[in-house]
Design a protein around this nucleic acid. Structure first.
Lengths: 120, 120
DNA sequence: CGGTTGTTAAACCGATCGGTTGAATAAGTG
DNA sequence: CACTTATTCAACCGATCGGTTTAACAACCG
């Protein structure tokens, strides 16, 4: 797994358990044990999941006696959104341009070329 | 890897090569060979990457003789954005609420309790 | 102090991943 | 037809993943 930020974030969120943890942390901070309770895996496994989320910058932790409360870090979402929006917009623009071309082609219906391969 | 849609999408984008392919497809459709050219891996490896993107619904393909042009599908981005925005908003709201609480605490500076643990 | 609770570290395991090589398939071109 | 081009399939390989068990560590509680 590439160690760049975006890769870590996407990779972290590729697991449904980790996404669920994020979802629950969105409503309230929680300790490892609290987070582990609903899943039928060991608390160690959940601890690992949280580590992954932490490494991705999605979660931060404080200390409260033996407990290590987890807190969702919202900033990282910006990174994803920025990436996504960029390419979504490009794709949509391209789609619109294609639409325009098709419309134009309908107006003056296919002069010469077969439109199979426009340019090199 | 869980086979649900969101998992496949995030998982697909967790790889930098695949993200780069998406980025390039945002500007123009391209064949497997064209896509493979800049990377120093075999074309088979790139073919696999494209398969992953296709399975995630990020890429669709048509046919042009032996070629299989790849086309970026923008819709899937909505799925991600929706998921992200939802939890980002919750996290931000919570942050704002916390801010409000802290402000209030500054107004009437710590009456009785130690504010260590508010409620069960 | 000893015991309990919360969390992590270490070692291991089967499955999947990203990559390879080699061969097969598909479809134009001489 | 044989030949080149574009793509995929199949088998394999080392690394990583998600999970386990066992043990350690940290900090409170009596």
């Amino acid at each position: 797994m590439a160690d760049d930020r975006l890769s870590r974030v996407f990779s972290a969120l590729a697991d449904p358990t980790r996404r669920d943890i994020v979802a629950r942390l969105a409503t309230a901070d929680a300790t490892v044990n609290e987070l582990a309770e609903p899943y039928d895996v060991t608390v160690q496994a959940v601890s690992k999941h949280i580590r992954v989320l932490e490494d991705a910058g999605l979660v931060s932790r404080s200390r409260d006696a033996q407990r290590r409360p987890c807190h969702l870090e919202g900033e990282v979402f910006d990174l994803m959104t920025k990436w996504i929006e960029r390419y979504r917009r490009e794709a949509e623009d391209r789609f619109r341009r294609l639409d325009a071309v098709l419309e134009k082609m309908e107006e003056q219906p296919v002069k010469g070329a077969s439109a199979k391969r426009a340019a090199s």
